[in-house]
Each structure stands twice: as structure tokens, then as C-alpha cells.
Computed example of a mutant assay.
Amino acid sequence: MLAAERRSRLLAEVRRQGAAAVPDLAVTLGVSEMTVRRDLDVLAADGRVDKVRGGARSPQPGIGGSRDLATQARRNGDGKRAIARRAAELVEAGMSVGLGGGSTTWALARELRGIDDLTIVTNSLPVADVFARPDRADEPYTQTVVLTGGVRTPADALVGPVAVASLEHLHCDIVFLGVRGIDLTAGLTTSNLLEAETNRALVAAGARAVVLADHTKWGAVGLTTIVDLNEVDLVVTDAGLSPEAEETLRAHVAELWVAADGDD
């Protein structure tokens, strides 16, 4: 059974029941529980189900940061998942990993759940939820550090002076940052002034800074600059980036990875 067909059946079953447990879904579809969990991650990222402890339910009415994030995640979802898979190659067991807010870092968080003994430093509440204590004893437990206080953005990220002060005392092996846009003149930008300040502190806290940006971010400019292009170590984008844009970007960043799409 192809992944798309399996997920379609999985979605139909959750909608039929309103809510369903992972073991029951695995039996119904004739696949492993791990396969069901991965499929639910994809469906949740697209906003088609809400993940709950041990299973999933049909999306509930209401407005919140996680809903806004799910809407963002649907835009070029395949590209963002490809970026997340490629970026996950940089992370090894035992690392301290910083993750900023945004739909692509959210996708990366789900890729990192299978890596043992990580310390996650994040100001994103949806990212922190990904690393909640697992409901199965054989899943790795990842310690999570959430930056408390500050202003809460529409995407449920905590930003501002309190978050910045917390970051000044933390040291990460690697940090991953999402952005509103990438421009040769404006650099890496965001639409939120306080988020820019917090993201600058996140970059400073990392021994290595990696930007995750799908091809739609090329040429886009947000309200304020986070850092210049030469202040990050690596940019990971997707295969939708045009050859001309790729050539230009390679000339202005330390390193560029173009993640190839693949069946997930």
C-alpha cells in the first residue's frame, strides 16, 4: 500500500470515529504502530488531525497558535519535510539542539524524536510539545528546555527580553532557525521585531547556526533583519529553488544544501 493511500484510509478512520488509538489503527490498516505514528505526524502537520496521547482525533474547532502553524505547514509541506529530513542528518545523540519557532523547525522536531539523549532548547511551544515524555517505554526520552516568559507570538513562540536573557546562559551544539524571508540585501528576516531579537540570541547561543527555508522564502523580505547571510553556517532549502537562485545563494552563504523530495 502506498503511503498516500494508507494515510487516506487512516484519515477516514479517524474522521469516522472522531478519535482513535494508535494500536486500533494499526490493526485496522494491517501495519505497525510505528508506521501509524509517522503517518499521524504527517497528517497533523497538514492540519488534518489533532494528535493526542496514544492516538489522534478529528480537528477541534477554535483558533490557536498550533492551528496557525498547521496552516503554515501545509504550504509546500513536501518541501518542508524534505528539508527537515536532510537537516536531521546534522544531529547526533547527546547533542544540545536549539530550535526556533516556525513550521519547518516544527517538521524537524518530529524528525528528531527518534534520536536518543537530546537536550532541546526552544522558545516554541508546539516544538516543545513534540518532545513531551513518550507514552511508550521503548521510545527515547528527550529532555526539553522551554524558554519561559516573554511575549507569545501567533505561532506560539515565546519572544522578548526574558527569552533573550535565558539564551545568554545556554550553549547549544547546533541551532536551527526558521525565517520569513531570505534576501541578498536584507539578509534573513522576520515580521516580528521581538522575534528577531530572540532569534539573534538563539544564533549566538549555537556553535553552529543552520537556517531552514523552503524555496518560497527566497526573495521575500520581512519587517526586520535577524542576521546577515554571512552570519550563519548553513542554509537548507528544497528542490523548488530555481537554478539561478541556487547559484546566487551559494555565492553569498557559507554552505547551501538542497534537499531532494522523496516518498515519506
Rank of each mutant, 00 (worst) to 15 (best):
L2M: 15
R6K: 14
R7I: 10
R7C: 06
S8P: 00
L11W: 06
L11Q: 10
V14L: 10
R16H: 13
A19N: 15
V22E: 01
P23K: 04
V27P: 08
V27L: 03
T28I: 08
L29C: 03
S32E: 13
V36R: 11
R37G: 06
D46M: 14
G47W: 09
R48N: 07
D50V: 01
D50H: 00
K51L: 10
V52W: 00
V52H: 03
R53D: 14
G55A: 07
P59Q: 00
P59T: 03
Q60M: 03
P61L: 14
G62V: 03
I63N: 02
I63F: 06
D68F: 00
L69F: 01
A70E: 02
T71M: 02
R74F: 00
R74C: 05
G77C: 10
R81M: 11
R85Y: 07
R85H: 13
L90T: 13
V91G: 07
A93T: 15
A93E: 15
S96K: 06
T105C: 06
A107N: 10
A107H: 15
R110N: 08
E111R: 13
G114V: 12
D116Y: 14
D116P: 10
D116M: 02
L118F: 03
T119D: 01
T119G: 01
T119C: 00
I120T: 05
V121Y: 06
P126M: 09
D129L: 14
F131V: 09
F131Y: 06
A132S: 15
R133V: 09
P134V: 04
D135Q: 04
R136F: 05
R136S: 13
E139V: 12
P140H: 08
Q143N: 14
T144A: 12
V145F: 01
V146R: 03
G150E: 01
T153Y: 01
A155C: 08
G160M: 03
P161R: 05
A163W: 09
A163Q: 13
V164H: 00
S166N: 12
S166P: 01
S166T: 09
H169Q: 14
I174W: 04
I174Y: 11
I174H: 01
R180H: 15
T185F: 05
T185K: 02
A186F: 11
G187Q: 00
L194G: 02
R200I: 02
R200E: 03
A201M: 05
A204H: 02
A207K: 10
A207R: 13
R208K: 08
L212S: 05
A213Y: 10
A213P: 11
D214S: 12
K217E: 02
A220M: 06
G222V: 04
I226Y: 05
V227P: 07
V227I: 07
E231H: 02
L234H: 09
L234Y: 05
V235C: 07
D238L: 13
G240K: 11
L241D: 04
S242G: 08
E246A: 15
T248A: 11
T248C: 05
L249K: 03
L249G: 07
R250C: 12
A251K: 11
H252C: 08
V253F: 05
E255I: 05
W257F: 11
